[in-house]
Simulated assay, not measured.
Amino acid sequence: MARNTRSAAAKRGKLSSKAAAEPPRWVEPELCRLMEKAPSGPRWVHEIKFDGYRMGARIEHGQVTLLTRSGLDWTGKYPETAAALSKLPVESAYIDGELCGVRPDGVTSFSLIQAASDSGSSSLVYFAFDLLFIDGEAIGFLPLGERKARLEKVLESPPHGIAYSEHDSADGERLRKAACEHGLEGLVSKRIDQPYKPGERGTWVKSKCLNRSEFIIVGWTDPEGARVLIGSLLLGYYDSIGRLLYAGRVGTGMSQQTLRNLHEKLEALAIANMPLDEKPPRKSRFGSPLELSRVHWVKPELVAEVTYLTWTADNLLRHTVFVGLREDKPAEEVRREMPRS
């Protein structure tokens, strides 16, 4: 069983140029800033934006630990991936990557990884895109280009289920449009001359094909008609001063099994009082009126990933589709993403 707890040593890793006896216990991953368009120029390289779980892989003498972006140990949840990583030609290493379900056409799918048991019934691939430590040497201080060159050498003949994330130095916006045409989520663009910066945003940026973000589930409404268990999920996010604000509703994209799973999880989190700091509007220009008396409120703990068309003028999501639960992201970290031009 996966251990969904932080270890006592799971703190932000300190990256330095000094030799180290063992890889860090956990390194807070470098994060991406959202931009409307992909950047271009000689200092930028671009990778496909994957649709899975961000995962650090700590390897020490054949023992592998898979760590989420918040430091949770998920080794027990994906034992086949851990076993594959243990076959890499290293004594010790710390790799940054993303664990994904992959469709037959090669496109990553978040729904596949959620459904995977990692027993061979689903195709899971760990895409490695950075190397922070190898065989007693901490290398996070090196420029990205040098780190990736060393990672590529490690992954010259990777075991099944492990892949090197290629990059391209061509025009970023042209590559983003090509990715969109192929049904991909977007691009991640990185400064090739920069060191790894745990927890920071700026030298890595993401540009998406779809509007897609994470929101906190704050409640649900009763179903209508033939629908069962849940009508729609009420969504929220924290603003810059820590207020939990209403973002809108999502009612599409959920199968019968998903509705049952969500209902079970949400019932366990039920509370009497609204967790939002401001009441949601009863009416909006889009969608049916919200009857607060029929809303079931929950503790703001579950995080949902949602696609949407746009934000309305009154700061509500429009044309939403449920993608899945983000078990790897704490609710307190959810903020409204504002793309920069």
Rank of each mutant, 00 (worst) to 15 (best):
R201I: 00
I162T: 06
V205W: 06
P158L: 03
L155A: 05
L229R: 15
R212F: 00
G219I: 09
L244M: 09
S240H: 14
G199V: 10
S213I: 00
R243W: 01
E200A: 14
K208C: 03
R212V: 05
Y164A: 01
L233S: 09
C209Y: 01
R191V: 07
H167W: 15
F215H: 05
T203C: 04
E214Q: 14
G202K: 06
Q194T: 12
S232T: 07
G248D: 05
P159H: 02
D193S: 08
T203H: 11
P198C: 13
K177T: 12
S232C: 05
S169V: 13
I241S: 14
L210Q: 13
E185D: 13
L187F: 06
C180F: 04
S213N: 14
L233Q: 07
V218D: 09
K190V: 07
Y237V: 12
L234Q: 11
G161K: 02
L175E: 02
D193M: 05
Q194R: 15
Y164L: 10
A178I: 08
E214I: 08
G236F: 10
R227N: 05
E224W: 07
L155K: 02
P159Y: 04
G199W: 06
G202V: 08
L155N: 03
L184D: 01
D222T: 13
W220F: 15
E224T: 14
S189I: 08
D168A: 09
D239P: 03
K197W: 00
Y196P: 12
L233M: 06
L235G: 07
H182L: 15
P159D: 10
K208G: 02
L187G: 06
R176H: 14
T203P: 02
G186L: 05
R227A: 10
D168F: 11
T221S: 14
D222C: 01
Y237K: 12
S207K: 01
L245P: 00
L184M: 15
A226I: 01
S207L: 02
S189M: 09
I217E: 04
L175V: 07
K177M: 12
L245S: 05
R201G: 03
Y238K: 11
S232H: 03
F215A: 01
